[in-house]
């Protein structure tokens, strides 16, 4: 009974949370705007979105993983690996078309994600351990394939760098790619059978099995998607920063998980919305990008992020408790 009651509150809270997040973003924006009027200029917004694109793309994959009650710690290592693979190919075979190289990076990422999925579904290893193991393997492999060397700016072709820095219709490619990923994700989650079955799997794995859903396949799929997006963003990361190192994107997985949590994705599975993580990533991006604008040392960035996440999850718990209390009071007893 109590469990059901809790779920009930979650649902009422869902709508709240996104509104709250939006409100918070608006308040922060206004405050920053007052202190520095250059914040809400086209150029700065373009910058901000560009910087948030990779994080927001990864959040989509992480949300699906979290929805199935999992977690993926290997994504940053996967990005480094796929990105490094692509970078080496660019360095050694500059004549190959950048898009083809990107596809190679994506395939490498997908394969790693697929292995994660296999270990978790068929091998019955806890997600946190399986992906931690993969993180090590991928980081080491990145070093192995690069022989410990960097791929530097001059070794990249312009065509490759353009994938992340170029523009189409006056908008940066990264932003366009992110928009495309979100559109696809929205369609996939809300309008395909598989998308809904992923949510069913996370909402109640046991019933999902009884309803004839192949939950193992859902888990493998989710981690493969996560891997695919890691591969994609890994290539974009290298193209954007025009430098590939074996410790690229170190620790980035935590940022992605944090953005999802800010966006209201529950770590206990079953719930999470595309709109939520978009706002979550955006808030994360704003926190990262506006500090210099308001003359706060960038060294405050981490602490502020940590504090905001902590406060957000605690506020969420308190709101839920308040709502449970009100519901109980309403029950005529």
């Amino acid at each position: 009974m109590e469990k059901l009651l809790k779920k009930k509150n979650n649902i009422q809270l869902d709508q709240f949370r996104e509104l709250g997040l939006l409100l918070f973003i608006i308040i922060i924006s206004i405050m920053v705007q007052i202190r520095n009027p250059s914040f809400l200029t086209g150029e700065n917004i373009n910058d901000l979105l560009k910087n948030t694109a990779i994080l927001s793309i990864l959040s989509v994959g992480m949300m699906l993983v979290l929805v199935t009650r999992g977690i993926d710690l290997s994504i940053a290592a996967n990005m480094a690996f796929s990105g490094m693979l692509a970078s080496i190919i660019v360095r050694d075979f500059p004549q190959i078309h950048p898009v083809l190289i990107m596809l190679i990076g994506i395939s490498a990422g997908t394969l790693s994600g697929f292995i994660n999925g296999l270990l978790i579904s068929k091998g019955k290893i806890l997600p946190i351990i399986a992906t931690l193991g993969m993180m090590y393997v991928l980081r080491g492999s990145t070093f192995l394939i690069s022989k410990g060397q960097w791929v530097s700016a001059y070794q990249f072709t312009d065509g490759f760098k353009k994938m992340a820095t170029g523009t189409n219709w006056g908008i940066n490619n990264l932003i366009l790619i992110a928009v495309a990923v979100y559109a696809l994700a929205y369609y996939f989650i809300n309008h395909t059978r598989t998308g809904r079955r992923i949510y069913a799997t996370g909402s109640n794995p046991d019933s999902a099995k009884i309803s004839g859903i192949n939950t193992d396949r859902m888990v493998i799929l989710v981690y493969s998607i996560m891997g695919m997006l890691s591969g994609l963003t890994g290539v974009l990361w290298m193209a954007r920063f025009a430098s590939a190192q074996s410790d690229s994107a170190m620790g980035y997985e935590m940022n992605v998980i944090a953005a999802c949590v800010l966006g209201g994705v529950s770590m206990s599975g079953g719930s999470g919305k595309v709109g939520g993580i978009l706002l979550g990533s955006l808030l994360f991006g704003i926190l990262n990008n506006t500090l210099p604008l308001i003359n706060v040392s960038p060294f405050w960035q981490n602490a502020i992020q940590g504090a905001v996440i902590l406060l957000a999850v605690i506020a969420n718990v308190l709101a839920k408790r308040g709502m449970t209390k009100r519901n109980l009071n309403r029950r005529d007893r």
Partner: peptide, 30 residues
């Protein structure tokens, strides 16, 4: 935090404090 807010998993709490604690170290020493 983990005992007062049992609804939160230890993973999410300590991921937040992981970012926060190191963040404070950065504030202090840049």
């Amino acid at each position: 935090i983990v005992t007062k807010f049992k609804e939160l998993s230890a993973a999410i709490v300590t991921i937040s404090t992981m970012i926060l604690y190191r963040g404070i170290a950065y504030i202090i020493l840049e």
